[in-house]
């Protein structure tokens, strides 16, 4: 295996794991649930993407034929990540979880919970 391919795959692997680690650091550091939601949904998708590309490249070279089935996991994760994020945000809204101090537009949350337009007046 050429040095260049090895270097590229190594960089991809470390970058992928690094993104996963940053996602988890965000999960611990960020102040409230809604901000925490951003960390895993984003950091993990790109992290997994990097790892799976590395896996495709390496196993294709090792077995001397193209092995693309890791793409299915990538595709699946990319389809499900926003759905999970949306469902979790919805659950948190209906569970009435508070925002961190300084969040702008906090007052919209009660409107969002009732699923009515923000312009609508309270009775």
């Amino acid at each position: 295996m050429s040095f260049l391919v090895e270097l590229l795959v190594s960089i991809l692997i470390v970058a992928g794991a690094g993104f996963a680690l940053i996602g988890s650091i965000g999960l611990v550091r960020l102040p409230d649930f809604y901000t925490r939601l951003h960390a895993p949904t984003k950091a993990t998708t790109l992290g997994m993407g990097c790892l799976l590309v590395a896996s495709i490249a390496l196993i294709s070279l090792a077995e001397a034929e193209l092995s693309v089935h890791e793409l299915l996991i990538t595709l699946f994760l990319f389809i499900t990540a926003p759905v999970t994020a949306h469902m979790l945000a919805k659950t948190a809204l209906h569970y009435d979880i508070g925002f961190v101090r300084g969040t702008r537009g906090k007052e919209l949350a009660s409107k969002a919970r009732e699923r009515v337009s923000p312009k609508e007046n309270d009775e």
């Binding site: 984003k42 998708t45 926003p82 949306h86 948190a92 919970r113 699923r115």
Partner: peptide, 20 residues
């Protein structure tokens, strides 16, 4: 909504009943 959830620091949380 999925695109918004996947891109720059935004997560779509809820849509109103009239979808506006």
């Amino acid at each position: 909504a999925s695109t918004i959830s996947l891109t720059p620091g935004t997560v779509s949380a809820e849509v109103t009943k009239d979808r506006k």
